[in-house]
Design a protein around this nucleic acid. Sequence first.
DNA 1: TCCTCTGACACATTTGAATCGT
DNA 2: AACGATTCAAATGTGTCAGAGG
Length: 445
Amino acid sequence: MAAGPDAYLQGNIRMTLEDPELWRTFHEIGTEMIITKPGRRMFPHCKVNLTGLIPCAKYILLVDMVPEDGFRYKWNKEKWEVAGKAEPQPPCRTYLHPDSPAPGSHWMKQSVSFLKLKLTNNTLDQHGHIILHSMHRYHPRFHIVQADDLFSVRWSVFQTFTFPETSFTAVTAYQNTKITKLKIDHNPFAKGFREEGTNKKRRPNKSPSCLEKRQKMSDMRDSEEENPQDFLHSSYEGYDGDEAELPKKKEVDDIKEERYSPWTAEREHRARTESPAGADARDLYNAEQLVPAPASYPLYRFHEYGKSPSPSSSVSSSNGGSERGSFESRVPDVATVPDHDSSKPHDVAGPSPCGPQHLPGPQDYPGVLNMTVAQAGKPGVIGHHIYSPYNAEQPLGQWSNPGPAQYPPPHHLTADYTAQAVHHGYHHGNVAEWSQYPLFSYSCW
DNA sequence: TCCTCTGACACATTTGAATCGT
DNA sequence: AACGATTCAAATGTGTCAGAGG
């Protein structure tokens, strides 16, 4: 274990999402992310804060994209509808933060941005972008691994974090005009398309026709587009559930964790019914993590939305939970957690008790790992259906015959996803299996 | 015909090198 | 000579839109 004797003792790590309000604004409508052949950045982009790391221990930060479910969607009449089963999972890639590996102090001293992460629909992409299918839903997962170098990753403990409001639909062209407007309003690169912007030439001429076209396509545009209630009501009707009962936005605020998007509502429904932990359904800050335990290395997952279910959640609660989505990892089965108090501010900029550190500057090797993506198909359950690109509703047999082998076949699928999650986080015995799909078999830095 | 995807386009920001002044 | 501020051009990131293609 590259990280030394304390490698198993990664407790109290807390990850908070930067700019959660913006994410929620998008999520309320139904975030869409453009994917292009050359690769497209996300907006909003993923930016997180970390605390609770061991300042002198080195960590690697990774992001991958997990299918939200096993469906393909289509945009029909101002709402998303299920359009069939999801397509086979594209080559699974994980984005490695370019600073990796870096000491905990480095990660904690400022927010960690994944600005340069790009999404593509080009399954033959050679640039290391994360490959997604259009019209499918995904959510990013953030992994933090205590490891001295990239090659130690596969032997180390993964701690995984997700934020429900970061889920999105991958598209090649925006479907929802509300999302387009939000992007234009918030993305500085799109300033030229703002109504009040300096661009007087393009918008006035083209915008109306565009809207007209979309109007034609949507066939049932509401005359009052700005009504959020109407909007929420109209969106995602294919997954309606209890959409009609959505409270008005003002009312939603108090319980926005529960309903701030139809997607969330849908996920939550599943969480409510399927979570073995019986987590408070309102706390939908889905958090996934792989936590080591002495014997079985079970996975722990709980729901947090604006607050942590752990006693130490006062931190996140106090900072509002409205400012940042946050997640604090726990190591419930490991008693010997390193004694670092994550609740107190980290003066990581100060002298490190670890002696001189090599603080790698932003290194120019952002890359991807060809890890097989875990599947959080059942939000209420531990999300790590490792190696299964689909949730339980999907026939696993699909992967026993991987077809034309454009995509690497996953590891064998077992019913015990806990064990697989362990497999993911730890690599204890099944060397042969791992060696089939080396962690770094596809890297592009 | 419908739906999705692609590529060119105009406009914006970002980045880095070159220049200038202190 | 060294440093910081400013300028400028190239690179890059955006949404739009017409048209291709399944």
